[in-house]
């Protein structure tokens, strides 16, 4: 189990239904965009890993989507477990999705205590001349959260603007904060994944 491999970090998407979490996920996985009516295209795929190069380090971001479970407010607590980062997503054209963020933030700090939290305003392409949510409001929110928010971003999944930049930045933030911890981490503190047994012809021996 002590193989040298690129460290992998679980990153989860959080936020209201319809703010574009699956769109961000889809941009991350295959850099495409589909309209809302075609939601089924992510069926069966729930997380995806991608390698980022940060200076002399490689880091794998493993991004997780909710699978639509937040629609009726029933995300499992295990979704949050082992998360190293959480992206709190709201839609820039939807003030309600912004004002409810504190609720989602509470879930994150409850179930994923150690996760770094990032704020993402999506649908920047829909911004009119008069923004629905101003930068001042975003700053105020971050302050209210006692600086729990490590970074803020604006993205448009429709145009693709800002998405890759966001993940690059998240990767470098994680490398920085994990530099020492990754090195100290010992296997004993962790469980393991169960995997299919290798089909050996050799019988396990009882005697």
């Amino acid at each position: 189990m002590a193989t040298i491999k690129i460290p992998e970090q679980k990153v989860i998407l959080c936020g209201e239904y319809g703010v574009g979490k699956s769109s961000i996920f889809r941009r991350f996985t295959n850099n495409t965009f589909v309209t809302a009516t075609d939601r089924k295209s992510t069926l069966g795929l729930d997380h995806y890993s991608k390698t980022y190069h940060v200076g002399d380090r490689d880091l794998k971001l493993q991004l997780w989507d909710t699978g639509g479970m937040e629609r009726v407010a029933s995300i499992t607590s295990s979704y949050y477990k082992f998360a190293e980062a959480a992206v709190l997503v709201f839609a820039l054209d939807n003030p309600a999705s912004f004002h409810i963020l504190s609720q989602h933030l509470l879930d994150i700090v409850t179930y994923a205590e150690n996760a770094k939290i990032f704020l993402c305003g999506n649908k920047s392409d829909l911004l009119s001349d008069v923004p629905q949510i101003t930068d001042t409001e975003i700053e105020a929110f971050c302050e209210q959260c006692h600086n729990l928010i490590t970074g803020t971003y604006k993205t448009s999944c429709k145009t693709g603007e800002g998405v890759e930049e966001m993940f690059n930045d998240i990767a470098s933030q994680l490398v920085q904060s994990n530099r020492s911890r990754l090195e100290l981490q010992s296997m004993e503190q962790h469980g393991f994944k169960i995997t299919p047994s290798e089909e050996t012809t050799e019988d396990s021996c009882l005697c």
């Binding site: 069926l43 795929l45 699978g67 479970m69 629609r71 009726v72 029933s74 499992t76 295990s78 979704y79």
Partner: peptide, 20 residues
């Protein structure tokens, strides 16, 4: 308790609707 949640997620990922 993590076990049922894992299978619930599988169901949701494949289109299952959840109501608690």
């Amino acid at each position: 308790g993590e076990l049922p949640q894992g299978f619930a997620r599988l169901s949701a990922i494949y289109g299952g609707t959840y109501m608690l």
